[in-house]
Every structure is written in structure tokens, then in C-alpha cells.
Simulated assay, not measured.
Amino acid sequence: MADVRRIQVSGGSDGSAEGGNSAYLLPDEKVLVDPGPPTESAWDRLRDGVTAAGLALEAIDHVLVTHWHADHTGNAARLHEAADATLAMHAHDAPLVADYAAERARRLDRDAATLERWGVPADQVATLVDFDSPSPVPDSVPVRELADGETVAGIEVLHTPGHTAGHAAFVLDDVGFVGDAVLRTCTPNVGGGDTRQDDPLTAYRRTLSRLEARVEVARPGHGGSFPLAPRAAELRAHHRERSGRALAALAAVEPATPWALAERLFGEMAGYHVKFGAGEAYAHLEHLRSAGLVARVADDPLAYETAHDAAGDDPERLADAAAGVWNADAPD
């Protein structure tokens, strides 16, 4: 069994549902996974944790990051420079760190355009873009782009999209460093965390199946380790129930944009919940569309209606039909 040291690099005092960030040091492999947010307190905890494990910071050879979100990547460039270590991520997420300044500008434009297409009011879109403050990280940094199935210091790269397009888990023996793909205390957002994805919930179903096939113990980006299979079952049950609610709610207000459906499902939203709520509604609508239960009726803004020949108009039948999609095997 590999020697793994968990370093809690933030305490979750910001009130986030998932709690503080966890970094992982593998002293024998000289690898550190997810070095945490770009704060001095997180850096101090990271440095102290590495030292407490009996390893000099400069001895780290590889910094592996599960996905591009700042609470995981924020200290990556600093650690890369301090240790002269290789910073590596899956190729789909790597550019958002490697070329941070330019990619952030493109991301904000993409987010705004996507939210408008999802039907979010213009004032809400503008507020959300203003709310997205830049991270104190370098404009650019060298990042090695990883592919699914590749290995780094004996650790396998497993592409696990859904939360982001290039989310990756890193697997050693039967232990998976799973980032935000599977969390113990909350459901990872699928849809709003990365607006580059066309059908994020279908991708996430595949991710859960891939992780179950390779991982027994999950080491998440927030909190401590847990058995993966029972938690994956809970996440499927959550989305099974949410899909049923989404389809039944759509039948009552159709045609509806993702934003209109999100308001019906989640009520009033503000701040980043605007993007997360609209994104989750979009993810469920696209997943149901791929199953033939929902159809698009317009593109600008995007709107959906139920496919009436699939389940009829009765809310219970619609909910049962949506749940039945999740009872089938995940798509290849």
C-alpha cells in the first residue's frame, strides 16, 4: 500500500458546502496532488505538511492537479517554481492554467454567452461575470498535458469529466485521488462548473462507472477518504431523483429554458449559484434529451419540451421514465 499523507490546506471557513481543500503527498513517488487555493495560509499549511512528512519541498518531482478550478490549482505554479517540479493536468483542462490570463478572458466570454443561451437574464449574467474575480496566479506557466491511461511516477491518469471537461483522477493501486468528481458530504456540481461541456451529466455517469471499475478508496479534493462504491451509488440515486423532478417540472411549464427550469427546481438564486443552478438544469435536460424523453424547440435562447410520445403528461409517469434512464447501464 502506497504511503499517502493528506494535508488539509484550507479549513472551509468560507462556508462552502464541500469544506476545506485536501492536498495529498506521496513521499515515495515524490508527487503532490492538488496543492490548493492561492492563499498564504494554504501555502503555509502545504509547506508545513510536506516538511512534517520528512520530505524537503524541493524534493517534489511532480505536481498533479485534478482540474482547473482555483481552489485546486492556486498553489500549483508556486510549487512548480519552488520545487522545480513538473506541473501536469489532463489536456482538456491544462490550457486554463498554462495560459491563465488569456483563457480566463475567453472563459468569461464563453460563460456569459452560455448563460444567455440558457435563458439567464442579462443583469444576472453581468453580475455573475463581475463576481468572478481573478486569481493571484501567473498569467502563464508550463503545464504538461496528460492523456487518459498515461502514467506519471507509476500513477495512472483516469479522465473523469462531468465537473469539468478535463477533470482527471489519479489512481495508484486501488486508491483514487478523485478531486471533485466524488465528494463525501455534497453532490459535485455537474454543468455549471465548466460551460465547455455539451452533455455533462451523461459524461458524469460514465465517470462514476470508470471510477468504480478502478478505485476502492476515494481520496477527494475536500475532506478525508471513504469507500467509493457506496458513495457512487448515493450520487446516482440523487441524480435519478433529480432527473425525475426535472422532467415533471418541465411538463408543467414547457417550453422552458434551463434557467426557467432551474428557478422552478431551486427557487431564487444569486452569485455563483446562478451558474451552478442553470448549469445543473441544462445537464439534466441534455441527459434526458439523449434518452429521448426531452426535445429542443429553439436554439436562441435554448428551450426544451417533453417528448410526449415517450412518457405522456402524467407527472408520476414522467418521473418514473426519467428514473428508468438511471436504472440502465451507463452509456459507453
Rank of each mutant, 00 (worst) to 15 (best):
S243A: 15
G324M: 01
G154N: 08
I7C: 04
R210H: 11
L235K: 03
L201C: 06
G12M: 06
G271L: 03
E241H: 07
R317Y: 04
E216P: 00
N327H: 13
G74R: 00
H222Y: 12
E316I: 13
Y24S: 11
G166Q: 07
R236S: 08
E254N: 08
V97I: 14
R236M: 05
A147S: 13
L25D: 04
A319Y: 04
M269G: 03
I7N: 05
V143F: 00
P331V: 07
V141N: 00
A262G: 09
A281G: 07
S41L: 15
S10H: 05
G292S: 13
D309S: 12
G193I: 01
E81R: 15
W68M: 15
R289Y: 13
P27N: 07
V31A: 08
P121Q: 09
D44K: 15
L96H: 15
G166P: 01
A307M: 11
E150K: 03
A76V: 00
A232T: 09
R242S: 14
A233M: 05
A23W: 02
L26F: 06
S135R: 12
A262T: 05
T51P: 05
L87G: 10
D313R: 15
L55C: 13
Y100D: 09
V137R: 05
M89V: 04
A98F: 09
V31N: 10
G277V: 05
L228D: 02
V152M: 03
H308A: 15
V141D: 04
A321C: 09
A53K: 06
L250P: 00
T187P: 05
G244N: 04
H163T: 11
G224V: 08
A233V: 11
A76H: 00
V65E: 06
P38F: 01
D173F: 10
P27C: 06
S209M: 08
L172C: 06
R78H: 06
P258N: 07
S209H: 13
R206F: 03
R110E: 14
T66H: 15
V253H: 08
L64A: 08
D14T: 10
R196K: 06
G191I: 00
V182K: 01
L115K: 03
V33G: 06
P230M: 02
T86G: 10
D314E: 15
A256H: 05
A298E: 14
A251G: 13
F226K: 00
A256K: 08
V9S: 03
A88C: 11
N21F: 03
P134Y: 04
R236C: 05
P255D: 08
V125W: 00
D28M: 06
E286V: 14
R196Q: 10
